[in-house]
Write a protein that binds this DNA or RNA. Structure first.
Lengths: 203, 203
DNA sequence: CGCCTCTTGTTAAAAGTTTCACATAATTAG
DNA sequence: CTAATTATGTGAAACTTTTAACAAGAGGCG
């Protein structure tokens, strides 16, 4: 979140920000920001604040996103294709260098210059290319199988876009992405507002 | 998350689950699950567990996703179009009934039978259609403007897919969606694993 | 050069969340 | 019908996170 907000400040040409300004923008407490940043090092200057560009670099270095990560995508359906076509990935440091699917009709197909390869060849291909992160975009019932293939290929992390939990060895990191969770959250907030209060005055 | 996991159990034909089984699947503590569910009501049966279908319904009712929500999308770029074409929205209870953009070249264009309307006509159109939730898929520097239009139209909640923070009146709920946060999280975990430990034995 | 102002980094207190442990209730078997 | 078994719902303890308060350091001005 901080990177996102700091990039906005950078675009606007603001060279320095205080924890207070950052806090107002992110809707959090200034102490929170100072704590979070201090966890990684002393990035600020007392009496002055944080240099926007320096802070962006420092956070990116701390998170390990100051380099390019090689990624593979498994499951070339609607969502998979949309992600493959999304330029932002490379720009943000995640290069999708291979795409896999088990559907014979899809194998051989090209999506923005990337050939869809059979999932059975994932292990060798991913190793040859030195892939470190896998993106799962299969239907939910195929997610675990995709995950197993990725683990075999000695991938180090997985982003699972399929709406299903997967089990993995402890040393493989996973993040679940499902924006319907956010839609549910908004639905819940609105619903709470509109529901009659449990105990109103004079009740 | 629970809905997601329970739907998987339902597909597999499992009629009843215990908090322990749910916990193993979600990688959390069984007490956590019982606490979370107990917050909304007594959905389980002592000595038996939770009825999968009943629990899904109960959670959905609690979250307010047991009905259809009318949504409007602002910003018909790559991401916007992808979302408009995504069938899952309607299936999950979120019906996108209007699409807006300020680009004259896009206005009038049709995306799966939905006409792109000028953002300036958002207020009247959204009110006429009874829209409650807005989806922002503009570039980051347009997100606030889109949000302002949505607030004018008396929308109750916003999902912001643009990588920018927005400020809103307190009674409008907002959720930020940016899956790069998840990519960053995985990058960080892998990086931590690989970085030399701060203080090793005999150091 | 020293004083004043400003804002960080950090310690301690407050608030919140997660886990444990067990009483309570439902079901099944004898 | 009673006892044994099982798994929920919940109050209290352990742990984590957030907030407040302040000492320490940087820059500017007289």
């Amino acid at each position: 979140m901080y990177v996102q907000v700091l990039e906005s400040f950078k675009r606007e040409g603001t060279p320095v920000v205080s924890s207070e300004l950052l806090a107002r923008t992110c809707n959090v407490n200034p102490s929170q920001i100072r704590k979070d940043l201090a966890y990684f090092g002393e990035f600020g200057v007392r009496g002055v604040g944080y240099h926007v560009q320096d802070l962006i670099s420092a956070i990116k270095r701390s998170l390990g996103v100051d380099r390019m990560w090689k990624c593979a995508l498994v499951g070339v359906g609607n969502l998979g294709k949309a992600l493959l076509r999304h330029r932002e990935f490379k720009y943000r440091g995640f290069d999708i260098v291979a795409a896999f699917d088990c559907d014979p009709f899809k194998i051989g197909e090209e999506v923005i210059g990337l050939e869809v390869v059979c999932t059975r060849r994932l292990k060798e291909t991913a190793r040859d290319l030195g892939i470190e992160i896998g993106l799962i975009t299969t239907p939910p019932d195929r997610a675990q199988r995709a995950a197993n293939f990725l683990v075999e290929a000695e991938i180090k992390g997985i982003i699972n876009f399929a709406p299903a939990r997967i089990t993995l060895p402890a040393d493989v990191h996973v993040e679940y992405v499902d924006f319907f969770h956010h839609l549910y959250a908004v639905s819940f907030s609105i619903t709470l507002d509109q529901r009659p209060k449990a105990k109103a005055i004079g009740d």
